[in-house]
């Protein structure tokens, strides 16, 4: 599978990553190699294999609906780059 610079730019934008031109070239090559490697899988015959979305052989992991202690606002906000009162503060969002 070929991957072009536009695709890498698009994916970088979705991930909110800024790339310098030389990084773009490098990542383009690396992603191309990675996808090529993964692509080998398509040569396998999986007709008899059941689809899986998880590798662990467990299911139905649930918890009871019983409240436990939450963090204090101070603890919750401890690593916030910016706070106002007990709120996290972020650059103003329009709409």
């Amino acid at each position: 599978m070929a991957i072009d610079k536009e695709t890498v730019k698009y994916v970088a934008h979705l991930a909110r990553i800024e790339l310098r031109p030389e990084e773009l070239d490098k990542l383009c090559r690396q992603l191309h190699d990675i996808l090529g490697f993964i692509d080998q899988l398509s040569s396998l015959d999986v007709k008899e294999v059941k689809p899986a979305s998880h590798i662990l052989p467990i299911c139905n992991v649930l918890r009871e609906d019983e409240p436990r202690k939450s963090l204090s606002p101070d603890k919750a906000l401890k690593n916030a780059p910016s706070r106002e009162g007990d709120f996290f503060s972020v650059p103003k969002i329009i709409e």
């Binding site: 609906d65 939450s70 963090l71 007990d86 709120f87």
Partner: peptide, 21 residues
């Protein structure tokens, strides 16, 4: 009584960021 994926109690009257984990 609690959130979907954690045991924080759901109570919409509580002060901001006091029902988080």
């Amino acid at each position: 009584k609690t959130k979907a994926f954690c045991s924080c109690a759901i109570d919409f009257g509580r002060p901001p960021n006091s029902g988080v984990c």
